[in-house]
Amino acid sequence: MARLNPVPISAVVLGVAGLIPFLGFAALAVTGSDGGIGGFGFSPRTMLSAYGAVVASFLGGIRWGAAAARNGGNGDYLVAIIPSLVAWAALAAPAPWDLRVLGVLVLAWGLIDQDLPRRGLVPRWLGRLRLVLSGVAGMSLLVAA
C-alpha cells in the first residue's frame, strides 16, 4: 500500500520551477521569437527539445530509484531505461517529430508511473504531482511541435 505522507514543499517548488523552461521555450518557439538566445547560437526549439530529453531521462531515473529503494522487480529496471532511449532517438528525429515524440513520452510516462504509488514504491503524493508536472511539460512540447 502506498505511503500517506504530506507533499514536501520543496518537491512542489522545484517541480513547478522545472516547468519554467518548458513553458518559456515553448512560448518562444510558438511566437517565433528567439528571446535573445539566438545571439549565442541557440534556438528556443532546440533548447526545448534538449530539455525535454533530459527531463525524460530523469523520469526513468525515478522508476530506477524507486525499484532500488523498495525492491522493485527486474522489470522496473528494464522499463526505467525506456524514457532515456526514446528521448535519445527523438533528438535525432526531424522537426516536428522530435517534440511530438518527447511530448507523448512525457505525457505517457506520467500515466505509466502511476503504478509506483499503487505498488507502494513511492508515496501517493508523488503520483499526483507527476501527473500535473508531466501534463504541463508534455503539452508544452506538443504545442511547440
Rank of each mutant, 00 (worst) to 15 (best):
T46C: 05
L28D: 03
P94K: 01
G110F: 00
R128I: 15
R3G: 15
L107C: 01
S43G: 15
G127N: 03
A17C: 10
G61H: 01
D113M: 11
F42M: 13
L14T: 08
V86R: 05
T31G: 10
A2I: 00
A53T: 08
N71G: 15
R70V: 02
I9K: 10
L23N: 10
R100M: 15
F40P: 11
S33Y: 14
F22Y: 11
L102F: 02
I82K: 03
G135V: 04
G120H: 01
I82N: 03
A26Y: 03
N71A: 15
I112Q: 06
F42L: 14
S10T: 12
P117N: 11
V86S: 02
Y77R: 07
F58V: 11
M139R: 06
G60S: 01
A53I: 08
G72E: 01
R70G: 15
M1L: 11
L99I: 09
A95T: 09
L48I: 04
V106L: 01
A80Q: 02
F58S: 07
L126S: 07
A89S: 12
A95R: 09
P6E: 13
L14A: 13
A87E: 00
R45N: 09
P8I: 00
V13F: 11
I81Y: 06
L131N: 05
A93H: 11
I37H: 04
A89P: 09
A11E: 05
G35K: 00
P6Y: 03
F40Q: 13
S49N: 14
L131T: 01
A53F: 06
W88G: 13
I9T: 14
V106N: 02
M47S: 08
M139Y: 13
A108R: 03
L129N: 04
I9N: 14
A29D: 08
S140R: 02
N5A: 12
A50S: 14
V13K: 05
N71V: 05
V122I: 12
V106I: 14
R119G: 09
N74K: 10
L111S: 10
A90S: 09
R119Q: 15
